[in-house]
């Protein structure tokens, strides 16, 4: 990859592949990828945040590796090669989480392993990393990971605030509210409500971006 020097590192095109995932090409809201974990880990903000960082790390690293290898991988077995690279990255992240934030790693349980089957990774590798150089692929990976993370944290905030009245474990809704008859919405903590929240977020986003709407 020695010819990279021709294009400036932060050229408009590169920046676009970094910023697009936040809005017009958001992996969760527009491409409808990686929903499983987006919904399952968002009962509280903290695990959602950790999950977002893990996915960003895995996405960026595997994008770079596969982009560097893209000319040597035979087309027919590429899916298996991709899965092996992703799985290796996920094992690294998993061991890291177990070592430094054991409680949260327990809370995330199988969903760390499920980063492997998170469609964002496969989707980005197929759509971007296999046809681009490592540096833009890295930006694309970080951008998509963070675009996913933003949605995750937003859902986490809504669910934790209305479901248990806290944010990141700290009490937000004052006691006076509860005395006045306010009750936490327990349904927020159940799976179905997460789906409805995503539906509503998609609704809001599409009403703003008219060109995303389906005819």
């Amino acid at each position: 990859m020695s010819k990279e020097g021709k294009e400036p590192m932060f050229s408009a095109k590169n920046m676009q592949s970094f910023t697009n995932p936040f809005n017009k090409n958001n992996p969760v809201l527009v491409q409808i990828l990686g929903i499983c974990s987006a919904l399952a880990v968002t009962v509280q903000v903290k695990p959602a945040f950790v999950m977002a960082l893990s996915v960003t790390a895995v996405c960026a690293l595997s994008n770079v590796i596969l982009s560097a290898l893209r000319k040597t991988i035979p087309d027919r077995i590429r899916i298996i090669v991709q899965l092996v690279v992703i799985a290796a990255m996920v094992i690294l992240v998993d061991q890291f989480l177990k070592a430094y934030v054991y409680d949260i790693s327990k809370q995330l349980s199988v969903y760390v392993g499920l980063i492997i089957t998170n469609c964002i990774l496969m989707g980005r590798i197929e759509a971007f990393a296999l046809s681009n150089k490592p540096w833009p692929s890295f930006l694309d990976g970080v951008g998509n990971g963070l675009g996913y993370g933003v949605v995750l944290v937003v859902i986490g905030i809504i669910r934790e605030l209305f479901g248990s009245g806290t944010l990141g474990g700290i009490k937000i809704i004052p006691d006076a509210f509860y005395e006045a008859g306010y009750v936490n919405n327990g349904l927020m903590l159940f799976p179905p409500m997460a789906l409805i929240i995503v539906g509503v977020i998609i609704w809001v986003q599409r009403s703003k971006n008219k060109d995303l709407q389906e005819k």
Binding site: I32, F190, P191, P192, M193, A194, L195, I196, V198, G199, V200, I202, W203, V204, R206, S207, Q213, E214
Partner: peptide, 23 residues
Amino acid sequence: IPNALKGPGIAFIVTGLLGMAFM
């Protein structure tokens, strides 16, 4: 259905309602 809700939006909401039924 409102234009912005067509496609995935309404699909998520329906899935949520189904999930409540399955509870």
